[in-house]
């Protein structure tokens, strides 16, 4: 199966990854080979087969009681932040100045 460079570029953008030209062709041919192998699944007729997204047959939506419980303090939650200010995570500017 052929995965052309345009598709690799599009998927890379969706994945928030930037790839060098040589990576684009390498991933393109590797993904092509993997998808070619995976297409084996089309040998199976699954028209009336329900999907299994997990294997716990009895599991329904799991709710907890709506009771306040202590959680991480802001200070602890921010300890690993690459950049923070006050009680906030700091990131590059999102809204451009007019």
């Amino acid at each position: 199966m052929k995965i052309d460079k345009e598709i690799v570029r599009r998927v890379a953008l969706l994945s928030r990854l930037s790839l060098a030209e040589d990576e684009i062709s390498e991933y393109g041919s590797q993904l092509g080979a993997i998808l070619e192998y995976i297409s084996k699944l089309n040998e199976i007729d699954t028209r009336d087969v329900p999907p299994t997204s997990h294997t716990l047959a009895t599991l329904k939506n799991v709710y907890r009681k709506d009771i306040l419980k202590p959680s991480l303090k802001a200070e602890e939650a921010l300890k690993n932040a690459p950049s923070s200010e006050g009680d906030f995570f700091k990131v590059p500017q999102i809204i451009e100045k007019r």
């Binding site: 998927v11 890379a12 699944l41 199976i44 087969v49 329900p50 999907p51 299994t52």
Partner: peptide
Amino acid sequence: LLGTYCLSSGYYDAYYLKALKVRT
């Protein structure tokens, strides 16, 4: 990249949903 491709619009049914059915 592989996962994003299989979940992306237009490929979801052919790959992800198909795989979940085969899992059954």
